[in-house]
Every structure is written in structure tokens, then in C-alpha cells.
Write a protein that binds this DNA or RNA. Structure first.
Lengths: 212, 212
DNA sequence: ATGTGATGTAAACAACTGTTGACTTGGCTT
DNA sequence: AAGCCAAGTCAACAGTTGTTTACATCACAT
């Protein structure tokens, strides 16, 4: 037959195993950080042998880089969906999102987990910078801010808020952790408008996505 | 003599050694996290033998707890200084502050570093919660928010922004890292007012600390 | 000066870390 | 059915980890 009778998937499938390792590694790295996560933890949870990590990813560092690459893609995809209108909603979605698995979002968490490696660290910083740039370009076309550096600073502040919120949610701080995506939208709207628009927020301040 | 001829301090001083270990540990734990920091790193940087960590703090975990305790005290002290008027300035000071050593602030960073220990974790969460409560009580007396849980959520969002900003600054993200305390005050003012006051920010919105 | 307890050191421990090489097993081709 | 290579396992490796034990040394009271 060549396939499992129950699941229909082959018992030996390199792609599937590789993907499984990646999935587990993402969760563990995001939740516990790089140093606190052991390759045996990952392999055991994935149900495969430790040696396969080195076979498919060369090293623990390589596996982490692959996870980071996934986070980059995922973030780019999420950022591409934002129509330039409702940034706060997109952020709330990203912060509260479950990335298809049920746990906390992972993507933003991975972005601030660090191995010691110089190259990986640079990669991580680049993503953060690019994301903040996109944030600045999308949400901040207001003429109030003269200095482009000022705008960038404020965009990074919004990014910092998103990341900090994600972290505190992952820590289990209540009521922040308990809050749903809907609960977060309004406060985040106020935050983004406060930082980026530097002024009052009215209901019809959002163009194109507000209620009719 | 009993003292060093140069420094005037005794060559064997338990209190001094203990303090030295604490100081180094705070910096390393804050910068690299719990798991990535080894007791030998700490002892070497402090210039003493590794065994002294276990003598003075029982274990690595005990040393970490001591660091966390320091952070708690420091934060309580900083929070006590805020006269209830200018919260954003206090936050900016805390985010950009150097805690007397020159490096990034440590205190807020320590608050999100985690060992695996359950008891320590609970301690960490308690501090965060109390700090957010104080933030809510101090800055949010506005009648706009009916639900007290809503106010708490928003206060925790502000805390999240502060912590996230600290983390991104520690990561070396520019221009956020380069920004001085003065540079951060205004954007943070807008952020706090946006989240907690939910409305426009005017120059004379601050009571007691604004320009005459 | 001298013993005595506090302070610091050195070396070793057992457990755990990432990694590797030799080996076994499965699935496909022929 | 046989063979062959990819996919997976096993066991060991060298180094590192936190911790402990036995030993040395300084400071101070006597």
C-alpha cells in the first residue's frame, strides 16, 4: 500500500517530518525562547528522532533560522492584506491571532526571540525595521509630523506596543490574556491614533472600513 | 591593615561580593534572559568563584529571584515618585532610564525574563499586575470608561507598550534605540493619552507639570 | 601570636547539551 | 522478488551546565 491505513499519509515522508519539526519548533521557540528550548524537546514533541533536526536543518541554529523565515513570510502576508485603511484592526488581529494552531500568535513572539548568532540577529532586526517602515507608510500620511525620523520613531512605538502586548498575553497577565480580538480593537485604535495621528479619534476617522 | 591600599575596601567582604554578583546578574539576566545566562558567566564577570553564587543565593534560581526582588523594589520606588500628574514623563524616564549603570534600563526587561520556576513566575505576574493597577489608578480617573475591567485592560496596554519599547531598544532597533528620553516623552504622551484618555491631547492637558 | 570562623578557591560530580557516525528499516523501481 | 537509496533510529561523543565537597586563606578576637 505504502500509506497509513488510518491517515492516508505515508509512514516515511521527509517533507511531512520536516514540516512537523518546523511547526513544533516555532511553538517552542516562540513560547520559551531559543536557549530554553532543547532539540530533544522539539524532536520528542514531534515524535521523531533528534538526529533528524541536524539532517533537515543542519543545526539548532538552522532550525531557528527556518522558523524566523516562516515568521517573516507570515508577517509579510499579513501586512499585504492590510488595505491601508484599518491598521489598528490588522494589528489587533495579529496580536490576538492564533496562527492556525490555537496557541498565542507566535509570529510576533518569534521576532524578539534571539539566538546568539550575529547573522540571525541582523535578519531579525531587518524584519522589525521593514515592518515599522510599512506601518509608517501605511498609517502615517498626516502632515502633522515634519521629521520623517519622528514618524519612524512613532511607528516603532506602535510596533513595540504590539509586541509588548503579545508578550504580556503570552505571560498570562489578566485581563489582557483573556481579552478577545474584538476587545482589543478599540483600545488599539485609540493607541494607534494617539501615537500616529497625534490627535482626537472620531468614529468616522477611519476611511473605507467604518460602519456605513 | 585589612583593607586594599588602593580602593580602601577589604579584600574579603561578603556583602560587597554578594552585591557585585547581584549587579552582574541583573545585567546579564536582563540582557540575555535566564536560560542563556550561565552562572560561570556571572561569576567570571564579577571576578569571583562560581561556588559563591550557591553560597549566597542557594542556586541560580535563587539569584534570579533576588534580581527580580530588586526590580520590584526599584519599580515601586520609581512609581512612588510619580505625583499622579505626568505619567507619560515617568514612563519615558523608566523606558529610557539607565538605572545608574549606563546600559539599558534592566528593570522592565527583568520583569519579562522568565525562569521556568512556578513561584518566580507568579511573583513576576503579581508585579506586572500591581504596576498596571497603579497605572490605572493614577492616570485613568476619566469618566469615559464605564467598565473597570476596560480601564485595567487599557492600563496593561500602556504597560505593554513600555515593555515592548524597552525590548526593542535593547534589540538595537533604530531610531528607537538612539532616541533620548526627551525624544520619547512626546510620543509616549500621545500614546498614553490615546489609550487612557481616549481623546484629543492638548498642551494644557497635563495638570501641574505643564509649562506655565 | 595564635587559633577560629568567615570568605574564597579548586576540582570534581552527574546530568544535560548539540552533534555525529554507524546502523536499521521502509518504500519504490526494476 | 531483489536491490537500492532515502528516511529514520540508536548510541556514543565531547563540551557545558548547575551544584557540591574538600581544601586554602584572610580577618579579627583573644
Amino acid at each position: 500500500m505504502g500509506t497509513d491505513s488510518d491517515t492516508g499519509q505515508r509512514r516515511r515522508d521527509a517533507a511531512r517530518t520536516r514540516g512537523l519539526l518546523l511547526e513544533v519548533a516555532r511553538r517552542r521557540f516562540a513560547r520559551d525562547g531559543y536557549a530554553a528550548t532543547t532539540v530533544r524537546d522539539i524532536a520528542d514533541e514531534a515524535g521523531v528522532n533528534v538526529a533528524l533536526i541536524n539532517r533537515y536543518f543542519d543545526s539548532k541554529e538552522g532550525l531557528f533560522e527556518a522558523c524566523l523565515g516562516y515568521a517573516v513570510d507570515e508577517l509579510a502576508r499579513a501586512a499585504g492584506d492590510v488595505p491601508r485603511s484599518d491598521v489598528p484592526t490588522a494589528i489587533a488581529h495579529q496580536v490576538a491571532g492564533t496562527t492556525a494552531e490555537g496557541g498565542p500568535n507566535q509570529v510576533l513572539l518569534l521576532l524578539l526571540r534571539s539566538s546568539g548568532d550575529e547573522r540571525t540577529e541582523q535578519m531579525r532586526l531587518d524584519v522589525l525595521r521593514r515592518f515599522a517602515e510599512r506601518l509608517a507608510a501605511t498609517a502615517g500620511r498626516q502632515p502633522d509630523l515634519p521629521d520623517p525620523d519622528q514618524l519612524m520613531l512613532r511607528a516603532q512605538l506602535v510596533l513595540a506596543a504590539a509586541i509588548g502586548t503579545t508578550l504580556l498575553r503570552a505571560s498570562g497577565l489578566q485581563p489582557l490574556t483573556r481579552a478577545t480580538e474584538q476587545d482589543l480593537i478599540e483600545p488599539l485604535r485609540d493607541l494607534v491614533h494617539g501615537v500616529l495621528h497625534n490627535g482626537p479619534r472620531r468614529q468616522d476617522d477611519i476611511e473605507g472600513d467604518g460602519r456605513p
